[in-house]
Simulated assay, not measured.
Amino acid sequence: MPETIRIASEQLAVEVSTLGAEMQSLRTGDGRDFLWNGDAAWWTGRSPILFPIVGKAPDDRLAVNGKTYPMAQHGIARRREFAIIEQTATSCRHELVSSPETREVYPFDFRLVLEHALDGNRLSVNAAVRNTGEALLPFGIGFHPAFLWPLPGADGKPHEVILDNGGEPGVIQLEGGLIGRTLPTSPFKAGRLTLKPDLFANDALIFPEDAGTGLTFQAEDGPSLHFAFENLPNIALWQKPGAPFLCIEPWHGMAAHAGGTAELVERPYTVALPAGEEMRFGFTVEIRN
């Protein structure tokens, strides 16, 4: 059975499950919950890790050198039990290593370590992927945290996402969960996007590049969350239509192209990690107000 452990600073407390090394709650010292609660009426996820793919594969089949393997959306890690390898009062580390079971669907050797760490009002979530095999390790990786929308205490107030770089990044339309065409205009204007549910009527908004390395999710005259991203060039925003949450998803890797190949190495932004090497990815979120 999964085990849930708790870490805390003076200002924040976080719970993390061994199932998928998935964060279960993010709560401030004054008792406000910021993370989505996983209500099955909308979406059971809370903050899954996406590995070794981000998004869908055509017909849920992934190809490696012409051989196909079953691969559900967002990969295998979110459904696997991780081992707790380290815990302190303010941090914890979970580990998933390749096994005969994982190699049946993803024929590579790897070690994936997830770390959650608190420092005051800031949470850091970091992933380290090590290639423990002898061949190149192809993979995508991403984070999928869902935060309450409206934010605590901000019912009825306008919410927006503001890019640190002030950009107007191009947005991709998904087609059956796969990467489709780039839309002609960006929903961001001078780096600002006012959130409305109809933005997500056709699934997530995918920004493959130019969204920068940081953004703020905020309510007018209310709380805000500031994010910083490391080695995660792709950003997605998603709400299941009508649900009271917003997913802010930094990725290194995206779904397969609609009408394209199922080959893992052909997926956009796939990493090819040499044998014996390790690569790190992560984000921080700072709760303000």
Rank of each mutant, 00 (worst) to 15 (best):
S91E: 13
M254C: 06
E104C: 15
G66W: 14
E104T: 14
D60T: 10
Q239P: 00
A211Y: 09
S91G: 15
R122G: 03
F217Y: 13
P138I: 01
F143L: 06
P250F: 04
Y269W: 05
A272Y: 08
L137H: 02
E278W: 10
D203E: 11
E266V: 02
S47L: 01
L12V: 06
A219C: 04
A77P: 12
W36D: 00
T270N: 09
A228Q: 10
G120T: 04
E220G: 08
I84M: 13
R130H: 09
P158L: 08
A117S: 15
A135R: 10
T182A: 15
S47T: 05
H226E: 06
L193H: 12
Q87I: 12
L246V: 12
P2G: 03
R111E: 13
F227Q: 04
S98V: 13
A272G: 04
A41D: 07
V125D: 09
D210N: 15
G31R: 00
A83H: 09
H94Y: 10
G180A: 12
M23T: 13
E160P: 00
A258I: 01
P70R: 15
L264R: 01
G156Y: 00
A154H: 07
L225S: 08
E209R: 06
L112A: 06
T261N: 09
T18V: 05
A8I: 10
W251Y: 14
I141S: 12
P150W: 13
S99G: 11
W36Q: 01
G214C: 02
R32N: 03
G191A: 14
G214D: 09
L19W: 00
L151C: 05
L118Y: 04
R103N: 12
V16K: 00
A275M: 07
V64W: 11
T68E: 14
E220N: 07
E15Y: 03
A154F: 08
W43R: 01
A41T: 08
G45E: 11
G133N: 03
A57W: 07
I235H: 12
P52C: 04
D39K: 05
G170E: 07
V271I: 15
I162S: 05
I235E: 03
L183C: 10
F34N: 02
F51C: 04
P268F: 12
D119R: 08
H252Y: 01
Q73C: 06
L35N: 00
F283N: 05
H116Y: 06
V125I: 05
L193Y: 10
V285T: 11
V285Q: 08
P241K: 00
R280S: 05
G242N: 01
W238E: 07
F110G: 12
N65F: 00
P274S: 11
K67Y: 11
A89M: 10
Q73T: 12
A135F: 00
M279Y: 04
L112H: 09
F108K: 08
E10R: 10
R192Q: 14
G191H: 06
P58M: 05
M254R: 08
R111I: 04
F139I: 02
K67F: 10
Y269E: 10
G242H: 01
L62Y: 02
F227D: 05
R93Y: 09
A8C: 06
E15G: 03
